[in-house]
Simulated assay, not measured.
Amino acid sequence: MAQTKNPYYSGPVTDHFDGVRFFNPDGIEPGGFRDVLKWQFGSGRQRVPWPKTVESPFAPAKPEARISGEGLRVTMVGHASMLIQVTGLNILTDPVWSERVSPFSFIGPRRVIAPGIAFADLPPIDIVLVSHNHYDHLDLSTLKRLQQAHRPRFATPLGNDTIIRRAVPDADIVTMDWGHRLEIADGVSIDAEPCHHWSARGAGDRRMALWAAFVLSTPAGKIYHIGDTGFHDGINYRAAREKHGGFRLAILPFGAYEPRWFMKGQHQDPKEAVEGMQLCNAAHAVGHHFGTFQLTDEAIDDPLVRLKAALIVAGVAPERFRALQAGEVLDVPLE
């Protein structure tokens, strides 16, 4: 029997890599094919359809070229795609401007709301953070466009560089393992940190590329960005606080969580996102991963309803955890 090979990455065994596949230490493995069938075709499924199109209450943003000093500005594009402007740098997270998040152009989750920034209106992009290789986070079509228009530096966890380079051969890519640091400029760095998730581009490459959260350390404060994560008993949030002390801003997923029996290990819900904000000692949070592509069963507005309730229960002022709509801009307070 042929030994399984990893097409993306080859490296030493670690506490989260067994020589072929990455894994979450003491974590939950993603559901298998039978679980997918149970979810999709089980008699108890309660999928709430989304509208085909939604209008954002905000017009598409036209960002300034740069934000300097103590300013920290976040503009929502949609789903996990955001523009972070800080210390004169323009940073995109998991950029997706495509109509679908799928290996196919004609089928798969389709965008219901237009991007909050028209691609042509982007300011000069310096850094692109790609947290993992699921299609709603690693969109090769968009990465090609960014390379052609901006030639940014791409930072991504181990193995994802192989996927990106096949489509963008001349890209400047920095690959990062958990615990690795990338120095950007004086006083500016990026750390790759653990999150509880998984990866796959198809049926035969599950967990063969790493997933990660990112910590941006800047003179204007620290930013904790998570593309996707299960709550995992708050282990990674506590570790981030212990290592980094706290954050001016945490950018946290809080959507795509139903049904819980299937999604719990990979997508936290609003209550867990609020608890995560508190555990990592974030002064402010921006929520994402909602209202753009229907990936799971909950209604399009369910994350917002549950977030509001979770904030009340936790005693967190609603202005401290913002769920930005496409095109909405937030200047993050200093305190």
Rank of each mutant, 00 (worst) to 15 (best):
M1P: 12
N6G: 10
N6P: 12
P7W: 06
P7D: 01
Y9H: 15
V13E: 14
H16E: 11
H16W: 15
F17G: 13
N24R: 15
D26R: 09
D26M: 13
G27W: 04
I28V: 11
P30D: 03
P30L: 07
G31H: 09
F33I: 09
L37D: 03
W39K: 10
G42C: 14
S43H: 13
V48Y: 09
P57A: 01
A59D: 15
A61H: 05
T75M: 05
T75F: 01
M76N: 04
G78F: 04
M82W: 00
V86N: 02
V86D: 04
L92D: 03
I107H: 08
G108W: 03
G108M: 12
G108C: 11
P123D: 14
P124E: 10
I125G: 09
V128A: 12
L129A: 11
L129D: 00
N133A: 05
H134F: 10
T142N: 12
L146W: 12
Q147W: 14
G159P: 10
D161T: 05
I163F: 07
R165Y: 04
R166G: 06
D170Q: 08
A171W: 02
A171H: 08
D177V: 10
D177K: 13
R181L: 02
E183I: 08
G187Y: 01
G187M: 03
G187C: 11
D191L: 07
E193S: 00
E193Y: 03
C195F: 13
D205G: 12
R206Y: 04
R206N: 12
A209K: 01
V215C: 13
T218W: 03
K222P: 00
K222C: 05
Y224E: 00
Y224M: 04
T229R: 06
H232G: 04
R241V: 02
R241F: 01
K243C: 12
R248P: 00
A250C: 03
L252G: 07
Y257D: 01
W261S: 08
K264E: 13
Q268Y: 08
Q268H: 06
E272L: 14
A273G: 06
Q278W: 06
Q278P: 06
N281E: 03
H284E: 02
A285G: 00
V286P: 01
H289C: 11
T296E: 10
A299T: 07
D302Y: 09
V305G: 06
R306Q: 00
K308R: 11
I312H: 10
I312N: 07
A323H: 10
Q325S: 13
Q325M: 14
E335L: 08
E335R: 01
